[in-house]
Design a protein around this nucleic acid. Sequence first.
DNA 1: GTGCCTTTGAAGGGG
DNA 2: CCCCTTCAAAGGCAC
Length: 366
Amino acid sequence: MPQLDAGAGGGDDLGAPDELLAFQDEGEEQDKSRDSAAGPERDLAELKSSLVNESEGAAGGAGVPGVPGAGARGEVEVGAEALGREHTSQRLFQDKLGESLEDGLKAPECASGMYKDTVYSAFNLLMHYPPTSGAGQHPPSSQPPMHNKASQPAHGVPQLSPLYEHFSSPHPTAAPADISQKQVHRPLQTPDLSGFYSLTSGSMGQLPHTVSWFTHPSLMLGSGVPGHPAAIPHPAIVPPSGKQELQPYDRSLKTQAEAKAEKEAKKPTIKKPLNAFMLYMKEMRAKVIAECTLKESAAINQILGRRWHALSREEQAKYYELARKERQLHMQLYPGWSARDNYGKKKRRSREKHQESNTDNSLHYS
DNA sequence: GTGCCTTTGAAGGGG
DNA sequence: CCCCTTCAAAGGCAC
């Protein structure tokens, strides 16, 4: 129970050691990158050219091939493996993205406003969540509360993860500790669950991802929280996809196999908790879209990836902390859940691609 | 209609 | 322990 309040320090059995290591290792570089981030326009121009000329960068990169941004940004070490991935992937996508990126970044409002209040303002928003109970403390800048944020997506889905929103809530009484307390002595994944989902899966599907969080049967935290909707489930729970859904209410012709399939279909898909970068992306995507003319997620994600690396370690740490708490909450909500459960639910060709690339590599190295 | 693209990070499994 | 694979979000795009 006190784990959630324990912060990043003691009692954090979920904290990924890699994160700390990364921070330690990249600390100086991150600081450098932050310094260089003080010149956003320069960085943007750099970013732009890098995104456009990514593939060419392999040959022309003065410092790090394939990472044009590394040099001008202040020796931000992306890591060899990231380099390779970036290089290859962007080469694959550059034909399409190059133009779209350039078009988007060409927009004056994008170029000038790219950093004007992006990284830091979003971060300040994040700072609304108090590490312990500093809910009354507002971020240094004049960031409006979350719910007043103007850049909320048009679809009305809060950009932030539930935890983020939770921590950002002006109601500090709804601390994560309460969540865990409430849910800890609540039977998790009880047989009632399927019934609950069978009843609500349809409506849940209509609910925005995040909004639907608080109705989770094991997480009825909204009831005691003023200002919160009564019941919104965790966003990790998503109704079965239309493909998999077997029309739970159509019980007329139900073979045994169908019944089994139906039972499985009733089980909502429990999604992976979002990692730090995913939380960051979710937060910043709308901003990037607003600032640039881009809409393609692939292009936006490239920008966000750059921005992510431009964040100071303190800024990243907040997202890591959020992600850590998300994982912690997720683990408490779904003790038996494994990321493996969702394996195969996405049909991907990455393996094939990887095999292809491996073949290519082997050809290269042979 | 479905999968791919792109990003980073987490997790699981195999060697 | 290291490496590889998959998935998490997102929306345009290709097929």
